[in-house]
């Protein structure tokens, strides 16, 4: 191993000895000075995770979160210089992290927070305009075959837990003690303009949007969503998606319009 390889390995392993070949002007133990670098790396990356997952942190407290994040950082240091995406592996880590099991919804709250950061930095796109929809309605026979493109910022999370209510309670919206965390919720995350929005979807909403995202036609996605839940209300779902700018285009994929 070369010098930087040894230095790098020792940064991440608290049990590794200080690398050889380091000196200090006063002959003091270089390990103490090397610890500054080690600390900078670990603390700055834990801070990065704390910035992405503020509600996850609040749910378990700072001491627990930072200690857990420290283990994650040492096992999974970033592979990109773009830190905005660092932590996308944290929810799965939390799921397998035994000390976090008393808070079974923690991983899904973390997933929701990661979706918010992704939406924040996602590509810009204009939401569907009313004119575009009105135009599509002039030829109703073509509606079933239309492809619907979700906004680039859109993310969806179907959870066994009340992820939206839990998250909202940490934004000062509702009391946490009133939330039943074991009530399943589906979260829609989207940023049509500059603000990331989090919306709780009624049942079937995830089927509809996943259908759009995977290339089903409007007719196919609507049929699947209708079949997925007896109370599915297509009008209400489409109204919500339009209101929050969650869709960015309608097109006929194979024909030249």
């Amino acid at each position: 191993m070369n010098d930087q390889a040894l230095f790098a390995a020792a940064l991440l392993d608290p049990d590794a000895p200080c690398p050889d070949g380091l000196t200090t002007w006063n002959g003091s133990d270089p390990a103490r000075r090397f610890a500054v670098y080690r600390n900078n790396v670990i603390v700055s990356l834990i801070d990065a995770l704390a910035d992405t997952f503020p509600v996850t942190l609040e749910l378990v407290g700072e001491a627990f979160f930072r200690a857990m994040a420290g283990i994650f950082v040492r096992r999974t240091p970033p592979r990109s210089t773009l830190l905005v995406d660092y932590g996308s592996g944290l929810p799965t880590f939390i799921e397998r992290f035994e000390p976090a099991h008393p808070v079974p919804y923690l991983a899904d709250v973390a997933r929701l927070e990661m979706l918010r950061v992704r939406a924040f930095h996602a590509a810009d796109a204009d939401p569907l305009t009313l004119d575009q929809i009105a135009q599509a309605l002039t030829d109703p026979e073509r509606l079933p075959a239309l492809r619907v493109t979700p906004h680039p910022s859109l993310g969806i999370l179907s959870s066994r837990y009340a992820v939206v209510a839990l998250w909202a309670a940490h934004q000062g919206l509702g009391a946490l003690s009133d939330v039943d965390p074991y009530c399943p919720e589906t979260a829609l995350v989207v940023r049509a303009g500059l603000e990331v929005q989090v919306i709780a979807l009624p049942p079937g909403g995830d089927t509809l949007i996943t259908g759009f995202a995977t290339g089903l036609t409007l007719g196919e996605a609507a049929a699947q969503a209708t079949a997925s839940h007896e109370d599915f209300d297509l009008t209400a779902h489409l109204t919500r998606l339009l209101r929050f700018g969650a869709l960015s285009s309608l097109s006929l994929p194979t024909e030249i319009c």
């Binding site: 390889a5 790098a8 670098y37 790396v41 700055s44 240091p77 970033p78 210089t81 830190l83």
Partner: peptide
């Protein structure tokens, strides 16, 4: 300084001989 090694990013500015 250096801040990457072996595909990892350390988010710190590390020293050089």
């Amino acid at each position: 300084a250096w801040s990457t090694h072996g595909g990892l990013f350390f988010n710190d500015l590390l020293p050089l001989p």
